[in-house]
Write a protein that binds this DNA or RNA. Structure first.
Lengths: 202, 202
DNA sequence: ACATTGACACAACAAGTGTTGTGCAACAAG
DNA sequence: CTTGTTGCACAACACTTGTTGTGTCAATGT
């Protein structure tokens, strides 16, 4: 006996894949990477596992697609771009922090996936590449700020790497202890860091 | 038919529990939290799952014991204590970084457990508490450095929180991309950070 | 109107999981 | 030597997991 819901019309294959991926995203954000099971995703979607295997041959393919989509969405999200030089550098760092609920979810997924990434050399290398790209973007902004005289001279790549570490650690702290690391506190800490970089005023 | 190995003599119950926990530790460091299975631990130990259930009623108890032991061992490990003031602050931060293979393993286990911690409010609160303790210890060292005039005035708690974020992010980067973030590079980045804190010299 | 095809539900599968129970060996106490 | 007790192997358990196959509905092309 068939008691399924009305299926989608044809032709929106890719759109449906994104729907599925969104469900994956939500399950990961709430239950963590370890709690990411096909049946949980299906339940989140109000469907069965048959739907999932229809759109993705294997679980790994599903997760990879979801992570790629997350990265792509992260890259194309609306960014702050209020200023130039040091302000632009600050904006880029603020964009990483979990200051909004959506950003919290994204970072949550991110951190959760580290466990799997550290056990899988291929994934690990992929992550290393993505972080290196992020560092390169930061480096360009550091150099621009230096040209404007807003940051002291010094290897911009090293400054970028340090700033990336700083916000990355801040992300982790904010996720684990959101009560202490409120959005205001995060911004405060970041500004303190930038002030120290700029030259040590109080 | 019984073909078991020679069992230990009696009375070393707690010692055997630590052996088991060491195996847990190793499995977590190599296969990640997701790969931590009772049979994997048993195999690592050259035993069966029956041994594990003999010493621990449930898997959760086993993991909790292993994590507690990790924390305890981390707290009681030999620490650098070369100097005072800013040097002591630096030493405390260096102690966190994965500069040695053992420290890499410890941090590896740590990062792996974040996934589970973020999905479990109780664990999450526990981690938040531990991090807060670490911050408090750092705060004391910051204050001491300020008293010596080696660090400029400013809220020592905020400086400690920032430094903790910095090293924490550096830990993650070093684990994911050890080729880029070699021990020397890590120390270099940390010293750059401290130099910026101290007042912005190149 | 009919055939085809895409979109799923549903059930079953093998493999792996944590857990439980039974039983044997070695030690310790009487 | 007997008798308990500890330390563990071994096997079976109920369950969850990813995966596969089959069947049925709705949409589409002809």
């Amino acid at each position: 006996m068939y008691r399924g819901r009305m299926p989608r019309s044809k032709g929106d294959h890719e759109a449906r894949r994104r729907d599925v991926s969104a469900a994956v995203w939500h399950v990961m954000a709430t239950r963590g990477f370890a709690g990411l099971t096909l049946r949980a995703v299906a339940a989140e979607l109000g469907a069965t596992t048959g739907l999932l295997t229809h759109y993705f041959p294997t679980k790994r393919a599903l997760v990879e697609y979801a992570l790629d989509l997350l990265e792509q969405r992260t890259l194309s999200r609306p960014r702050r771009e209020a200023g130039q030089g040091l302000a632009a550098f600050r904006d880029a760092l603020l964009d990483i922090l979990p200051l909004t609920p959506e950003a919290v979810d994204s970072n949550r997924v991110w951190v959760s996936s580290w466990d799997a990434a550290l056990s899988d050399p291929a994934l690990s290398a992929d992550y290393a590449r993505k972080y290196a790209q992020g560092r390169e973007r930061l480096r360009a902004r550091v150099a621009a700020a230096q040209d404007l005289g807003e940051l002291p001279r010094g290897d911009p790549a090293q400054i970028a790497a340090g700033a990336q570490s700083f916000v990355l650690g801040l992300v982790v702290q904010a996720l684990i202890d959101p009560a202490t690391f409120t959005p205001e506190r995060q911004v405060e800490l970041l500004d303190g860091y930038l002030a120290a970089l700029a030259g040590g005023g109080s």
